[in-house]
């Protein structure tokens, strides 16, 4: 089948999509956007998190057909050209990236949190990121990264 989606602001078409393919597979293997990661493909790790019509979703759980006509924003669509989004910059500045496999999904989840809640408390940050596994960092620096991104956002608004 054919699937049409808007990805990071561009109209994209994938042909010969199998009925069983996930949005994650289509993004990674058919549209060349491998930024969203495939750590479990069961909705447990959050490494495949993308915005689908403005709401974060595990793209491994979304059937490609379900995304037809949808608006997708992936980790590749967070930066504005060469300028990193402040969440991305904060992850770098705090050392929240080790192997980085969890990073794309965490960035989308954290980005969404800060959009919705400009001043999240620590428990709220933890609650919002509870669906994103990271095996390397123990989450301390991820907490630092989100706090920094929040601070920076508050400083500019």
């Amino acid at each position: 089948m054919r699937v049409n989606v808007t990805v990071n602001g561009k109209q994209r078409t994938a042909d010969d999509v199998w009925p069983g393919e996930s949005l994650l597979y289509v993004l990674r293997e058919r549209l060349g956007l491998a930024g969203s990661k495939n750590a479990c493909e069961q909705g447990e790790c959050g490494s495949c998190t993308v915005y689908l019509d403005g709401v974060p979703a595990c793209s491994c759980l979304v059937a490609a057909g379900q995304a037809e006509g949808g608006d997708v924003r992936t980790v590749e669509g967070l930066a504005d050209g060469d300028r990193l989004d402040s969440v991305q910059q904060s992850f770098l500045d705090t050392g929240a990236v080790q192997c980085g496999f969890c990073t794309p999904g965490l960035l989308v989840a954290a980005h969404d949190l800060i959009e919705r809640n400009p001043a999240p408390s620590d428990p709220q940050i933890r609650e919002a990121l509870a669906g994103n596994l990271c095996r390397c960092t123990g989450y301390e620096k991820i907490m630092d990264a989100v706090r920094l991104a929040v601070e920076r956002k508050q400083a500019t608004t």
């Binding site: 491998a34 930024g35 990661k37 930066a79 990193l84 770098l92």
Partner: peptide, 14 residues
């Protein structure tokens, strides 16, 4: 780091 936060770092599965 920059490649990793941009989603452009090529892991083996990519």
């Amino acid at each position: 780091g920059t490649l990793k936060v941009r989603g452009e770092f090529a892991y083996a599965s990519d």
